[in-house]
Every structure is written in C-alpha cells, then in structure tokens.
C-alpha cells in the first residue's frame, strides 16, 4: 500500500527539524532532535513512539507551533508554522488539562471562545461535542467529580469541538488504566473511520501504536531521529478481534525489536536530565 499512500495529499510536512536545548551556555546543550523529516498524509493516524527523552513531544510541539526549533521547519498545507494555529490544529495533552473551576460544558465552551467562535454558537457546539463522547449528562459537573477516563473524554470533546482538521495528541491515555485505554482506543478508531481527521499521536505503548496507527514512526534515543516508519495496513474501525490476531502480535513484536536497542541506549544515558520530553 506504500505506493498508494504516497499519492495521498500531504497535510503536515516536517523538514529537517533540528533542536538543541540549553540556551546560551554550550556546556548545558542537549540535542533533542536530529534533522527529522517526515510527512503526515491527509486523514492519517501517525503514531510517534520512542524511548523517554527522544524528543517526540518536542516534535509534536513544533508541529503545533508551540515553539520554534533551532533549525528546519514544519508546514501545514504548504504553509510554514510559526505559531499555534487554532483554526487548523487542536491539542490533547497527557493529563487532564480541564479548568477545575469550570463545569464540563464551560470547559468546552472556553476553547471555542479562545478559538474565536461567536458566542451564540458556543453552547450548541459544546453540547454536540459532549454527545459524541457520550457525556451529555455530565455537562453541569465539575472536573473533580469525574473519573480520569471521563476527564480525558471531556478533553477529547473539547479538542473535537474546535472542528480542526488536525489533532495532536500527546500521550492522551497515559494516565488511564488499561481497560479504559482499550475502550478509548476503540472509540478513537471508530472516530477515525467516520471523520477523516489527520492525527499525530505520541505514545509509549506498543499495543496502542499498533492498534491505532496507520503508520508508526519509531524514534531513536536522543538526539531523536526517525529510525523506521512502519505501516499498519488495517482499515478503521479496528475492534478487539484485531488485537488477538497473529498479525497484531507480529507487528507489535517487530515494533519492539526496532525499539529495544534505542531504549537500551537511552537507559545508558540516564544521567542526562530527562526533562526534555
């Protein structure tokens, strides 16, 4: 299918992105990203996987326009990204980033307000987004009244309500228990099948990457570069039966084989502060 996917329109293009942390003092320099180039096709789910500190979150932030890399650039629909583009990109973070003083509904509405949606449109759009994650009955609840899984569903609803073409997800399920993660994964796969969103998804989980991704980009240990891109040729929506197939196990194992050496390398360098990722 590789030849076929190459003909699809490119939504995100990363061109030779390189980044070094540490500011003015060369002694504290840490090279985080090493000339990364990749393409994300329209309607594709691309997973970034790699050892801790390999710079996958950094790359996600470059794509999101949250900061400027030392060199290289990222483009969306051919346009260089220099700052956040709320009309095109929505973010979902690892832990719940809901405002604790606002209700579930208000949390979604505030995103629409930031994005510049007219006031009368905010509430109906927020309610529609809540319904897509099956939380319409919790509109008036406060975040601390919800479970971890429900909070992340609200975060997803907030990201979806923005109606962007691109969704950047930074380990959104990392703080959830395994069962919740699996259900979440199925829902996300279902969503991929119906809406053609372009998603870049950072994860630490091999199974999650294989289950969700159309392609998986495997990162090397720091400074992060792309070691290999693996294609998972299985149509969405993917169900629990996909997870029990031999093919799933083989894909997961070959992904692990790719990652093993890099994880060992990263472990050897553990004295380097791992605040980068």
């Amino acid at each position: 299918m590789a030849a076929d996917s190459d003909s699809r329109p490119v939504t995100i293009r990363v061109e030779a992105v390189e980044h070094t942390f540490g500011g003015d003092d060369p002694a504290h320099h840490v090279r985080a990203l090493d000339r990364i180039s990749l393409e994300v096709f329209h309607g594709e789910m691309l997973c970034l996987i790699g050892p801790s500190g390999c710079g996958k979150s950094t790359l996600l932030n470059v794509i999101g326009g949250m900061f400027t890399p030392s060199s290289g650039r990222a483009l969306i629909d051919g346009e260089p990204i220099t700052r956040p583009m709320p009309a095109k990109i929505a973010y979902m973070f690892q832990e719940s980033t809901l405002l604790p003083w606002a209700t579930v509904l208000e949390n979604i509405m505030v995103g629409l307000e930031f994005q510049g949606v007219a006031k009368p449109e905010r509430e109906p759009r927020a309610r529609v987004a809540l319904a897509t994650v099956n939380l319409q009955d919790f509109a008036a609840h406060f975040p601390d009244q919800l479970s971890g899984g429900m909070k992340q569903r609200v975060s997803l609803a907030r990201a979806l309500s923005l109606g962007t073409e691109i969704l950047l997800m930074d380990e959104p399920f990392a703080s959830l228990d395994e069962q919740t993660r699996m259900v979440f994964g199925e829902d996300l796969s279902q969503m991929l099948a119906t809406t053609r969103k372009t998603i870049v998804f950072v994860t630490h989980s091999l199974a999650e990457a294989v289950f969700l991704a159309d392609r998986v980009a495997v990162f090397t240990a720091r400074p992060g570069s792309i070691k290999e891109i693996m294609t998972i040729d299985e149509p969405h929506p993917r169900g629990p039966d996909f997870m029990t197939t031999d093919r799933f196990a083989r894909l997961r194992n070959s992904l692990y084989a790719q990652l093993r050496d890099e994880i060992r390398k990263a472990m050897r360098e553990q004295q380097v502060p791992s605040t980068i990722d």
Binding site: M66, P86, A90, Y91, F93, L99, F114, Q115, G116
Partner: peptide, 20 residues
C-alpha cells in the same frame, strides 16, 4: 499546562488573564 493549552487554542492575552 493550562497556559500551554490556552495558547494552543488561540487565547488572546486578555482571555488568557480572564479565563486562566
């Protein structure tokens, strides 16, 4: 993280102050 989120959703400086 809340400020990062607000930035990603395009909050203006005033919205950032009033809402976050």
């Amino acid at each position: 993280r809340l400020l990062l989120l607000a930035a990603s959703m395009g909050a203006s400086p005033k919205q950032r102050f009033v809402r976050i």
